[in-house]
Design a protein around this nucleic acid. Structure first.
Lengths: 253, 253
DNA sequence: GTATTGACTTTGGGATCCCAAAGTGGGTGA
DNA sequence: TCACCCACTTTGGGATCCCAAAGTCAATAC
C-alpha cells in the first residue's frame, strides 16, 4: 500500500494528463487539500514529486503552474527511452551474465506469438501481451549489466506510453477487418523484431542488437505518428487509452 | 536562494558521496534534524528528493538506508549520459534550428583552444575551460530539438562527473613534465573531437555526429579507468576532486 | 486621471504536535 | 532455560499552527 502522497501524486498526474485542468492553470496547495480531503503535508510532497517529473513548475511567484505534456513531449520521451534501450541491447549482447535472462526473453516471445495466433485482441489478451512485452524489455534492462539504464528509464516512466514494456494498440482495430489484419500484422512485425534482438544478443552481436532495438523503438513512434495523421489532433488522453499499460497507470483510490 | 530543503539535500548528498556515513548506515529523520538544526519538514522533503535520486532507500522497515554510489555506478551513469548526448548530436545534425546554437559551439571550441595554448592548468583556467565545455555540451542538448534529452540528463546530474559539461582533470598533472604533456594532449584530443562534432552537425552528417560524440563520451570513461588502474582503489570522493565541476556541487551553506 | 504607497489577503515554507505501526526488551510461564 | 507475549520506545506519516514574503486592491496625492 502506497502512502497518501504517492496516491495523491498519481491522482493529480492522472488528472493533468487527462486534461482535467485548463492550460496554464495555477493550482494552490490549499485547493488541492480541499478537493482531495487531505492535509497540506502530503500535498506538498506530491507536488514536489510532480515538480521533479516536470508536470508542474514551481517558482515564478506564488503557486504551481501546470505543464501538461503534449504529444510531442511523449514522442520525444519515447525516443529517449528507445535510445537507452538500444544501448542496453548492445551492452547485453556482450555481457557474460546475459545467460540468466535469455530464457525469460524467449518465454516472452513465445507468449506473444501464442497470443497473436489466438487471433483475439480483447482487453485481457492485450493485457497478457503487454505483460509479456514488459518481461522482454525489462529483461534487457536488467541483464545489460548497466543498472543505470533501467534506473534512468524508471525516472521518466511516469508519462503515458513510457512505462516499461508499454505497447501501442490501435483503438480502431475493431472498426473493420482490414484494420484488424493491420493490427495483427503490426504485432507480428514487433515480435519478429523481438526475435532478431534475442538472437543478436544470444549470439553476441552488438551492432545487430543495437540496430534492431533502435528500429523496434522507432516503430512505436511511427505508429503514434500514423494515428496522429489519421485521427487529426490526437490528445495525450487518447494516447493513454491506446496503451495497454494504461490500467497500471490508474490510481486505485 | 534555494529553500532549506534543497540546501539540506545538497549537504546530505555531499556527505554521502564523500563517505561521511559508514556503509549501510541507517539514518533517521530525528538525527538529521538534530545535526542540521532544522525541523522535520525540510528533512523529509530532502530525504524524498535523495530517495528519488537513488542515494537513499526507504521502506524495508523503519529508517532510510544509505546507498553510496560506487565508481562503477558513476561510470555506468557517464555511459548513459554519453549515449544520450550522442542521440542529441545526431538529432541536432538534422534539426533546422541548429543554426542558432552553432556560434556558441564554435565559441566554446575557440575558448578551450585558447586556454590550452596558454599552457597553464591552474584552478581558474580549468574552471574557465569547464565553463566553455559546459557551453558546448548544453548547446547540443538545447539545440537538438528533443527537450527530453536535456531533461533526462538533468535527472541524473546530481552524481559527481555528471553535471552538464563535467571534465576529468588528472590530479597528478603537476607531478612530472610527462604527466603535464599527457594532460595537455588529452585536452587537445578532446577539443579536436569537439571540432569534428561541430563540423558534422554543421554539415548535417548524423552518422558522423553521433559516432564522434559516442567516442567523445567514451574518452571520459577511458580516463577514469586509467586513473583507477594507476591509483589503485579510486574512491568516489577522489573522482569528485578530479572534476572541475566539483565546485558547483559544493553546497554553499 | 494616474501613479504610488500602504494595508490587507493569499500562499507557501518551516515547526510542532499527534498518532499509528514497527521494533525492542523484559517478564512470566512452560 | 527457552520461548512467547505484553508493554514501552522509536520512528515515520499526517495534521495543524505560525510566519514571512508576495500579491492585490484601494485610497490618497500629484
Amino acid at each position: 500500500m502506497d502512502s497518501i502522497d504517492a496516491q495523491l501524486a498519481a491522482q493529480i498526474r492522472h488528472d493533468i494528463i487527462h486534461g482535467a485542468y485548463p492550460a496554464d492553470e495555477r493550482l494552490s496547495e490549499a485547493k488541492l487539500c480541499e478537493t482531495h480531503k487531505v492535509s497540506r503535508t502530503p500535498v506538498r510532497l506530491a507536488l514536489r514529486l510532480l515538480e521533479r517529473e516536470g508536470i508542474v513548475q514551481r517558482g515564478e511567484g506564488r503557486g504551481y503552474r501546470i505543464v501538461s505534456p503534449t504529444i510531442t513531449d511523449i514522442m520525444q520521451a519515447v525516443q529517449v527511452r528507445g535510445h537507452l534501450e538500444s544501448l542496453a541491447a548492445r551492452l547485453m549482447s556482450q555481457a557474460p551474465e546475459r545467460e540468466n535472462y535469455l530464457s525469460h526473453m524467449a518465454e516472452a516471445i513465445e507468449t506473444i506469438d501464442g497470443l497473436i495466433n489466438l487471433g483475439r485482441l480483447d482487453a485481457p489478451t492485450m493485457h497478457q501481451m503487454q505483460s509479456a512485452n514488459e518481461l522482454f524489455h525489462t529483461s534487457i534492462l536488467d541483464g545489460c549489466g548497466n543498472d543505470y539504464i533501467g534506473f534512468t528509464c524508471k525516472q521518466i516512466s511516469h508519462l503515458p506510453m513510457l512505462a516499461a514494456g508499454s505497447m501501442v494498440f490501435d483503438r480502431a482495430i475493431t472498426n473493420s477487418p482490414k484494420r484488424w489484419e493491420e493490427g495483427l500484422f503490426r504485432l507480428r512485425i514487433g515480435n519478429a523484431q523481438h526475435q532478431v534482438i534475442y538472437e543478436a544478443i544470444e549470439l553476441g552481436d552488438p551492432v545487430r542488437a543495437e540496430g534492431m532495438m533502435r528500429e523496434h523503438s522507432h516503430t512505436m513512434i511511427t505508429y503514434i505518428e500514423t494515428f496522429e495523421k489519421r485521427d487529426g489532433n490526437l490528445t495525450v488522453s487518447d494516447l493513454v487509452s491506446f496503451s495497454a499499460a494504461a490500467q497500471t497507470d490508474m490510481p486505485k483510490l
